[in-house]
């Protein structure tokens, strides 16, 4: 009995953690290049609505996923131009994108509210692996393809960021744009591209909700997940692999908030991701100064050549 509770909780945590992981991976890439993207929530909403409309109209899931990503990229391009080329305040730009993006998505989706999707993305059991006791029901039964894609993406992002030359350049741009500039890197282009990647991932995260997890369109479908993904980025210490267990943890909080309604007020558990993030920030500040952990040093700072750091 307890075992079944454990496996179903893990399974739900994984399903619920998937959009958080996707969005957080996108944010890790952008922030590692030094750009904060507070527009995550807006980009997820637009990805969700664009993906749903395309899927409902054409019935093609691949096309829907592509359009969802492009929707994220389009808004991210706006943020990228403002943050990296116009060197304006990234926080204001991101906030504006979230507020505007949520409103626009709700407007676009108005007539689709409550309409079911004819051909949603379906969960499936992974052959062989789903038969493993405990692990099978926890991680390989009735999950979506996008969940496994997110896990693979975590590995890919890690490989690129920490094992490849472009990844090294990207991280240098986020740590010391002056050093990257002197080394011949195009700081603005790297940052712009990183923001676009973040937008694509946010769009994908939104599409997971409207095409697979629900699968339906509803007002405010992301329900603050974009913000939680930002907290997740911090909790994962800007590391793509650490984002995986962190996403599972946050997913578990959500699942438990439903399950334990009888025992605990659900609000308390939905509060936990934010509390954990604040705790993580406090710990980072505590141990900070040594530089081993924490945000990229040039995070949120526009770069102009010739200014002393």
């Amino acid at each position: 009995m307890e075992l079944e509770l454990l496996t179903t909780t893990l399974a739900r945590a994984l399903a619920f953690g998937t959009p958080l992981l996707l969005a957080a991976l996108g944010e890790v890439v952008a922030e590692r290049a030094g750009v904060v993207n507070l527009g995550m929530e807006g980009m997820m909403m637009l990805g969700a609505v664009a993906g749903f409309i395309v899927a409902a109209a054409t019935g093609s899931l691949p096309l829907a996923l592509l359009v969802a990503m492009l929707a994220g990229v389009a808004v991210a391009a706006l943020h990228g131009v403002i943050a990296t080329f116009l060197l304006a305040n990234q926080f204001v730009s991101g906030l504006a994108i979230t507020i505007g993006g949520v409103g626009l998505a709700n407007l676009l989706g108005k007539e689709w509210v409550g309409k079911p999707l004819a051909a949603p993305m379906l969960p499936f059991d992974v052959p062989v692996l789903s038969d493993i006791p405990l692990l099978g029901p926890a991680f390989f039964t009735r999950q979506y393809a996008l969940t496994y894609a997110a896990l693979v993406l975590a590995l890919v992002v890690w490989l690129v960021l920490f094992r490849s030359r472009p990844g090294l350049t990207l991280r240098t741009v986020g740590e010391s744009p002056a050093a990257a500039d002197a080394a011949g890197a195009n700081v603005r282009r790297v940052r712009f591209l990183a923001v676009l990647v973040g937008g694509a991932m946010a769009g994908l995260a939104g599409a997971y909700l409207s095409l697979a997890y629900r699968p339906a369109w509803g007002e405010n479908i992301t329900n603050g997940m974009g913000w939680i993904a930002l907290g997740l980025t911090i909790l994962a210490l800007w590391h793509p692999l650490r984002a995986v267990p962190a996403a599972l943890l946050f997913g578990a909080f959500f699942t438990l908030s439903f399950r334990l309604q009888a025992v605990l007020p659900p609000e308390l558990l939905t509060l936990l991701p934010y509390l954990v993030t604040v705790l993580a920030l406090t710990l980072i500040a505590w141990r900070g100064g040594r530089g081993a952990v924490g945000a990229p040093e040039a995070l949120g700072l526009p770069y102009r050549r010739g200014e002393r750091e």
């Binding site: 030359r165 991280r171 240098t172 740590e175 010391s176 990257a180 002197a182 081993a292």
Partner: peptide, 21 residues
């Protein structure tokens, strides 16, 4: 002009031409 949180090797690699992918 160094990235403080990079390792020494990473700081050396970033400015070099022709390092492998």
């Amino acid at each position: 002009n160094l990235a403080r949180r990079h390792s020494v090797a990473e700081n050396l690699a970033v400015g070099l031409r022709g390092t492998p992918f």
